[in-house]
Amino acid sequence: MSVSVSNDALHQFLLRMGDNTLILGHRVSEWCGHAPVLEEDIALANTALDLIGQTQMWLGLAGEIDGGKSADDLAFLRDAWDFRNVLLVEVPNGDFGRTLMRQFLFDAWHSIMLGRLMTSADDRVAAIAAKASKEVAYHLERSGGTVVGLGDGTEESHARMQEALDYLWPYVGEMFASDEVDAQMVAAGIAPNPTDLREEYDALVGRILTQATLSIPESQFAHKGGRDGRMHTEHLGHLLTQMQWLQRAYPGAKW
């Protein structure tokens, strides 16, 4: 690492990256066996597998900094207030349209973020970003294509996609919020200021949503509270109840 930075800030940053992929990967995996068509079932599982793999890398590194914890320790033994994912990824799947819209809105941010992280001053961060960015480029192509197809499909699919966008849009802003942790990351050259990604994001998302014949809601209101853990949605607790159950019920067992 070239510039010294507080381990705590770096730890928080890594949790934000890893918790996003952990929680979204979990949500996407809920589709397995229930998708609209076999080909989509298989594709969604690939996305979830990529996200789980990325989680192992981000949380693995976070655990290393946090006194030698494993990625599993962090995923399965923290309570909701210690999670640092944005609210967008923890909202329930809803219908296939909402799942794919959420995926697209996240992929767009994710791909831009990872692109910047590839030149991180921290080699470990840069290496994870380099691997993840290839996977995410495909996620974005797939989710973007599906959003366009369904937005500009039938009347029903259009209406459902617009509804999904209306529901999810208030969760987009949190991905671009900045705080003290981000300031330290910027100062150390580890990560960009999230606020600076917004312009590129708006251009990318605007282009796809226009092709999809969907309208971005006018309100710029943004829910927040996930990436600093101050106030998650009620949904996260239920997700963790399921995900962490075995580890909690049988402490210390090896699986």
Binding site: G153, T154, E156, S157
Partner: peptide, 19 residues
């Protein structure tokens, strides 16, 4: 479960094909 996946997925299959 299989019926639900198939019925709930109809609008998706139709939408993508229409596009």
């Amino acid at each position: 479960a299989r019926n639900k996946a198939w019925d709930d997925g109809k609008w998706v299959r139709d939408g993508l094909l229409a596009h």
